[in-house]
Nucleic acid binder design. Structure first.
Lengths: 328, 328
DNA sequence: ATGAAAGCGCTAACAG
DNA sequence: CTGTTAGCGCTTTCAT
């Protein structure tokens, strides 16, 4: 489209190499010719072709990000933080969405690698040894968040199990007669990587072990909304433990149509602490997934890997936090 | 990193051109050699270098998107829809955020163009003739959303003025004695492109013209939250007209800390119809910005421009919709 | 201080 | 049906 170094060379009556020296500031060059070249470059609005540069340098200063979607508050917040970090470091981010599709995720990663992104951050729905080999075969440093993929793949997140154990404990000590564990993503267990949710489930059971007298129910498919109301039919004091704030919000909305209000008629907790909660009352009790800290750490780890070329499977586990609300 | 066509050629004992023919499916080639090449390509996990291809073809099948941020519900929804459309068409999106920074926006666009994206969608904070020339100078089809940039730059959006006029009309007919127009972005008028908000303001005044007896107040800076309460001090029936749902939500949250509830103690409307509203009660009256339709149309228009090479400043104005809530 | 030449990996025009 | 050659725009030795 625009003007090239070749054109500039011709315009200034010098070689392309000299033009390059002027523009890049590398090597010795006569200040006057440099002046001239820079001036004509500006005049003609010269802009380097980043594809060509990337091709020869082997670096693009682009980072690839692959996540489920962007309408999800959790990812939106994460992308915001990652984006800010990238801007700060002079990198761009290449965001792609996999929409819970395992093969699509893989294709997106391949494509990004083929575009020579310098690093990848992925919230994966794949897992296992084979996938680990695929990832290392990409030849690009990868950091995973949310779901663990396999040993050897760097990971950043919180201790999901402990977090769920703690929040469950807080609920149990309130004397509920029944707790309903709401986790529709578990429906995909064995089909997609849902390790985050499996870990939380373990934490839940660990906490429940201490209170065998309390009845537990598990709603783990996407029709959960049709079953929340019936949990309250017999008048037992019931709490819903939702593994995402969105499930909690949806449940509260649904129950409200039947005149049932959180805290008064039932207990409920969420997970993630998405910012939507600020506007909803009663304030939902939840667990902070520390999304900002996770994003920052993921970027930090990625740049470390990119710098060292060391693709060892180091992981970072960040602290979580129980957010006391009004719904328990 | 990986294997190249040159390596494949050597492995199969043919020329790179033949390899290319096998891989691209262009031109005549002996089925057996093709077979061989494809097989060894697969065996060695050959993946084409997309930078190199982009360099020579002049097309990358990437689209650049530049918006304010991604934590904003409105943009998150838009990006989701655009992303789905892109996947459908085999394109990737390159998302960059400008964070209300005019120069950063320009830099991001330059960078994306330098990476040879095939098209650009931008929600700009710049405007005017000079910027229009900058954009056309990029040599890449551009479609703008939200803020109009200048005549000649394709635009997709709704009729902001009419939308605000209508919703204001609905409020006025409810007999409020005072309406408070809440639009902090107007503080940046003359500094950044806020044409969306200027258009809405015109619509507001147009509607108010019919009811000169009603007192109007304009809160147009970011300290608006500190001034909402005092508007209700004298007991006059007051409604807040917010130019974004987020301002309305923030106001409701703030007023709630003083025991004041929407609909009972004051009226309030929003703008955009972000999905957060589904979870907040009372249901906010708002205007649907038709974000999904806008995103779809923007992508459609962009691909048309990319196809025709015709960069004429065609615009698409989509219908809006008043969402009746419980807050007026 | 400057230039010539080779190369990144792929594609395309032209021969054979 | 296949190979040779040239070129995308930039960077990088290696001479001069």
């Amino acid at each position: 489209m625009g003007i090239t170094t070749k054109d500039l060379a011709q315009l200034c009556g010098v070689s392309r190499t000299t033009v390059h020296r002027a523009l890049s500031g590398v090597g010795r060059i006569n200040p006057d010719t440099k002046e001239l070249i820079l001036r004509t470059a500006k005049e003609h609005d010269y802009r380097p072709d980043l594809l060509a540069r990337g091709l020869v340098k082997g670096r693009t200063y682009n980072i690839g990000i692959v996540v489920l979607d962007v309408e999800n508050r959790y990812f939106a917040e994460m992308l915001g933080v990652i984006g800010a970090e990238m801007n700060r470091r002079g990198y761009c981010m290449n965001i792609m969405l996999h929409g819970d599709d395992r093969e699509l995720e893989q294709k997106q990663l391949m494509r990004l690698a083929a575009y020579h992104v310098d690093g990848l951050i992925v919230s994966s729905v794949n897992e296992g040894e084979e996938y680990r080999e695929f990832l290392t075969g990409l030849g690009v440093p990868v950091v995973s968040v949310d779901n663990r993929i396999a040993d050897g793949i760097p990971f950043v997140g919180i201790d999901q199990r402990a977090a769920m154990r703690e929040v469950t404990g807080r609920v149990l000590e309130r004397g509920y007669e029944r707790v309903v564990y709401v986790c529709p993503p578990l429906a995909a267990k064995g089909i997609r990587n849902v390790s985050v949710h499996e870990e939380r489930l373990v934490g839940f059971y660990e906490a429940c072990g201490a209170c065998p007298q309390i009845q537990t129910v598990c709603l783990n498919d996407w029709s959960y909304l049709e079953h929340v109301k019936e949990q309250l039919a017999d008048g037992k004091r019931t709490a819903f433990l939702c593994t995402a704030d969105s499930f909690a919000l949806e449940s509260m909305k649904r129950l409200r149509t039947d005149g049932l209000e959180a805290s008064r008629d039932y207990g409920i907790t969420g997970f993630d602490n998405i910012d939507t909660l600020e506007y909803v009352s009663p304030r939902l009790m939840t667990v902070s997934n520390s999304v900002g800290a996770v994003a920052t750490a993921a970027v930090g780890l990625l740049f470390e890997l990119m710098g060292s070329g060391n693709t060892d499977g180091r992981s970072v586990i960040l602290p979580h936090e129980i957010v006391t609300g009004e719904t328990i």
